[in-house]
Every structure is written in C-alpha cells, then in structure tokens.
Nucleic acid binder design. Structure first.
Lengths: 354, 354
DNA sequence: TTGTAAGCGTTATCAA
DNA sequence: TTGATAACGCTTACAA
C-alpha cells in the first residue's frame, strides 16, 4: 500500500481511501491510485484491514458432520448466501462431539469471525455458546434450537409431519412403530422428552402425539438411540425384531440411518413394505430410486442453510430478526415403503439374520 | 494483552511470550501471566497474531460442489486432518464456474490463508492458479491435475479401473458402451482427449484403452457430456437410446449422474442389467442398497482428502513432497448391475419415453 | 480533498 | 530473563 501511494504520488491515507472506496477522493487521484495498484499488482491484506475495522468478513459454521448429505446441502445454502454478501465461511466439523465443538467455537472466535452458525451437538452443555453470545457476535442455530439460549434458530417444523406420518401408519393398522436415531443418550432406554437435540425431539414428539391421539401406548422398547454406525444399527434392528412383539413399522431419523436400517432389514429377509413399513426423515436423492420408493418426510434443507445465513447476515448489519424461531415446513411424501401391516410380519424371525 | 501484562506486573512483550509459549520466560512469570489471563478472561486476537507472524493457520479449500457427496467426504478428510495440525479450513464453493473460482482464490489469498487445496474447474483457464502459486503459498490439487502447473496433486488412479470395468463389459459381449459425464465441453460431440478435467479424462481414457485393446471402434456418439441436471441427463439418455444402434451398457461418471441416469433408464422402461448394463464411478452409500446392487469403481474419497491435507501440511512446514502426483487406487466392485447384453436391448425403444 | 499521525493487538528485535 | 520499541499493513481521527 505504501508503494502504491508512493507511485501514485499521494499519501498512504489517500491511497487507502481510493482503493477502499470510502471517504472523499478526487476522481483524478482515484484513477492514479488505481493505475499504480494495477501496476504493482497490489493486493490488500485483509488481515490488516480486519484488524482495525473490527470485521473479518468471515462467518464460522460449526456442524456435526459435513460428510452427512444434510449438512452438505445446508452448507451449500450457507456458503452461496454468505458469498453473495461478501462473507467467507470457515468450516468446523465436530463429529457431534461437544468437546470438539467447544474447541471449534473458541478458535473461530479467536480468529474473529463476525458471526457463527452452529448446529449444537448437545442441549445440555451450552456454556461455550452462552460465552460466544456474550462476546456480542451474532449466533444462529442451525436445525436445532436451545431452550436456554436466547439466539435465533432456523429449523424445520418437523413434528407435524412426523405426526402425520405416524398417523398414516396407525390408520393403516400399525400398532407397533419403532423409531431409530443416531443420537447418543445417557442410557439405551427411552426415558422421555426432551432429548439433547431438538430436531430429534420434534420427530419423536410428533410420533408420540399421533400415538397418544390414537389412544395407543408408547413402547419405550421401540424407541432406540445410538445408531451411530452400520454395525450398531444392525444390532438395534436385530433387537427390535427379536422382541416378542416386534414392530411392524420403522421410522428412521435421518438418511444415514435409513440406509443402515434398510440394509439390516434386507439382511434379515424382512421385505418393505410387506413385512415392515418404513419411513425416513430427511431428504435424499436415492429415496425415490430404490425399490420400493421410500415414504419420507422431506425437508427444505438447502433453504434451511440459506435462511440461517440470511438471519445471520441481518444481524451482522445490526438488524434484529422478527422472530427467534424460524421454521420451515416439512412435507410427508407418501411413496411405496409404507402399507398395511401383515400378520406374517409380527412373527419374530430371529433366525434370518446373517 | 496490555491489561494482562499490567495485572501480572510485566511488560507486554513478556506477557506475550508467556502466553504464546515462545522465547524465554521464567516459570514464576509464566504462572503469574497465566493467572492474570484467566482472571481477565483474556482471549488472543489471532488476527493480530497472524499479522506479524505471517501465518494465519488457515487453509483455503476450493471445490466445485460441496453438496456433492464426493466433495463432502473429501472435505471431511481435509478438515479433520487440518484441525489436528491446528489449521482451520475456509471453504469456497464454485459451482464448477471458473469465474467463481478465480474470485474465490483471490479472496482467500487476500485473507492470507497459508495454503490452498483446489479442485480446479478447468484445465484451460489456470492463470489465477499460476498467480496463486507465484505468491509462494503452497497449493495442492484435489482429484484433478493440471498439466501446465507444477504443483502436487492428489488423485485416484482411475484409468486402470475404468479399463477393467470396460474390459469386463466387452468380455460379457458388449460392443456399444456409452459414457455420460457432467463435464461441460465446447461442443456436444466428443472430439478427443484430454478434456478440461483430468479425472474425467482418466475415466474415458481407461474406457478407450479397453475398447482399443479389443479392437473395437470408439463411437463418439456414445460419449456424452453436459449432464448437469436431471433434465439434461434424461435427454442424453433419450438420445442415446433412440440411436439406430443404441448402447447396451452405460458408464456414469459420478454418483449424481448415476442417479439421474438410473432414473431416466427406469422412466424408459429399460431394466438393469437385463437390457442395459450399468457401471458408476464414485463411491456412494446407496450403491449396494438398490436393486440390482450397482457395479461401481470405488474410490478412497476420504483418503483423498486426508492425503491432500497431509501434502499441504508438509509443504506448510517447508517440506517438499517426494512426488508431484499422489495417486490412490480405485477398485472395480462387481455387483449386480452388469451382465451379458441381450438382443432385445439392441432394439431402439424410442416410444417408451415419458 | 488531502496529509499527518495515531492506533488496531500482536510479535520481533535488540539492548539491558 | 526481561523491557522498550519498532514493526505488521491497514484505517481513522484530526488538521490543513
């Protein structure tokens, strides 16, 4: 910059004003500086710039697993939206570990990101998020809300769709409906809502509402967590179908689980939807490709990312979002993986396992 | 920092040394400073730190489409590896647009990332990458190499697997084998190798080698580009199967195309593998779930990301990678989507289209 | 409209 | 082992 100023025959301050397009600069000087800059292949040091403007023009995004299609798609919405507004995105992956999240938030804050979009790993350990908010930098929660933390969240209103899906199953005659999630809980047993992740709570809540409305009991043994790998999911499916009174329908909490459950079902020789009805939350490309095409609760995932970025952008400009809870709608898409339960499916088939 | 120094009763320089763990500081002073820092909830300004160390401890990653599972998985490998070494990742998505890429590289460089991992959108327009390299900051190419640019690349050695896949098809009796890619080329017609993206070139080269070795002609009309959306892919499939001599086998260049081709095939009532054999490049979760399970050329995508990060990290530490071209191996996984061609498939079925 | 000088929060240099 | 002081490369008063 000093070189540019010298070549243009002006002071550093004037050159800075000319290149930064602020303050008052005469047209002739502006051009002279521009020419000098081009001549010298000048590139601004955004670090220095950020240091005294106090704005880094970067936002931090903290997600559980970028490898998961859900976050990939949301990420796409975030980056595109942020970029259009001149912001860059610093990505941190936590593997759904709170420790990693704590660390990521710290690092991002130290690097002076202007704001944060976070999909918090836990609703219980949130001190670091309170601290982050207390730095004054805006935070937006992605896909999950936090009861105790007063910051905007962008979510999908999934409970109604979960309820609709469950109700449809009940109306088809299902009485034993299982729910499988990757969420890790204290114990393997379901002990009640809310859970550590609101988006999972909402799914379950919708399901329980439907059950309740139909006067059906909630069987804690059909609500299973910790499906974090193909192997654990397989075990869960095994346990479920070795129950004296096995489920006739299964809800999978996301697309990764859906895949593993479907694989486990097939391994056990259980056909969908004849022996087991199947519904997956989340939107994923192959849902309509497989046989049978999957009944799913579709979510506007890309839009979730876009909206999260928009809300953050608004706050970055000093605005206050009209509401703290931004919800997008989910849709139940009925396809071929759900149908009437058949008696044959109610017989446990433990011997079929591979 | 000044406050911390004051509270600890030392100079700014000493406090900085104590907190930054460098230089010589007595144990007592170190503790005094640490206590003061804790007391004041001191957090370093990494921007200021970066400004005079010249290292931002951030790397930039520029990919075509983070939404694509391939990049999502590679990204996971990159972030995890970088994080372990203390680096953050700034992500830029280009939508495979060279202009966006040029812009992204500029911004990242201005923000002083210490290095770059790029999956270049084009092998033709690379001036910005030469410029980037000339800044002295290390660059590693991901998934694609650039003939004219002397920087390390991390790729999958996919030509042999592509050749093996094609050879297997030929040995099964196939003579008309189509290749469909999303790559956008100058014209719709295939005019020869290399193409603008080396990973696509390699796939095709493997296929052409197999054809050549079997003494088979290369039909330019079976090599199709520009399958950028479900609709264009559908059109390509239509054109292919309305040919007087339609293909009996199709190779899909990646998982997104695979999905769209499969959908288009189904729409036309073409069954796999009875009427059309199908092979997809890329690794994706649902390949073994669908019916028939897909024959694929599997790639260690996560490892590609890890290796790219490792090579960059090495260069960041001043090292020189042993080789400029890092290749990982691909495997042909034979499953159910390939088989012998049947005569019936050779009859064009133009009327089946939706 | 322009220039001077101070400041952003660190680390690097050099002397003590 | 420590401290004073000068960078780092910009922006921002304030004055001219």
């Amino acid at each position: 910059m000093a070189d540019v100023a010298r070549l243009a025959g002006v002071s550093k301050a004037t050159a800075s004003r000319a290149l930064g397009n602020y303050g008052a600069v005469s047209e002739t000087v502006r051009e002279r500086v521009a020419t000098a800059a081009r001549e010298l292949d000048y590139r601004p040091n955004e670090l220095a710039r950020s240091m005294n403007t106090g704005r880094s023009m970067s936002i931090g995004v903290v997600v559980g697993d970028i490898e998961n299609g859900y976050f990939g798609l949301a990420m796409r919405g975030i980056t595109d939206t942020a970029r259009r507004a001149g912001y860059d995105v610093v990505l941190a992956n936590t593997s759904e570990s709170v420790e990693a999240e704590i660390d990521a938030v710290k690092v991002l804050l130290d690097k002076r990101v202007d704001g944060l979009i976070i999909s918090p790993a836990s609703a219980y350990e949130t001190q670091h998020l309170h601290d982050a908010r207390d730095t004054g930098r805006p935070i937006v929660l992605l896909d999950r809300r936090l009861p105790g933390l007063d910051v905007p969240s962008v979510e999908v209103d999934i409970a109604p769709a979960a309820r609709a899906a469950t109700t449809a199953l009940i109306e088809s005659g299902h009485r034993r409906i299982a729910f499988i999630s990757a969420l890790t809980t204290d114990g393997p047993e379901f002990t009640g809502l809310p859970l550590g992740v609101s988006s999972v709570t909402d799914r379950l809540e919708g399901m329980l509402q439907a059950l309740g409305a139909a006067g059906l009991d909630v069987s804690a043994d059909l609500i299973r967590f910790g499906a974090v790998s193909r192997e654990t999911t397989r075990q869960i499916v095994r346990q479920l179908f070795e129950l004296p009174d096995p489920p006739t329908a299964v809800l999978a909490s996301d697309s990764v689980i859906a895949l593993d459950v479907l694989l486990a079902l097939r391994e056990r020789g259980l056909t969908v939807p004849d022996e087991v009805s199947f519904v997956a939350f989340d939107d994923f490309s192959w849902a309509e490709l497989i046989d049978p095409p999957l009944t799913i609760v579709s979510q506007p995932v890309h839009q979730v990312g876009v909206t999260a970025a928009e809300v953050l952008l608004l706050m970055l400009q000093g605005g206050r979002p009209a509401t703290q809870r931004h919800t997008l709608v989910a849709d139940l898409v009925n396809r071929g993986s759900t149908g009437r339960p058949r008696l044959s499916a109610r017989a446990a088939r433990p011997q079929d396992a591979g």
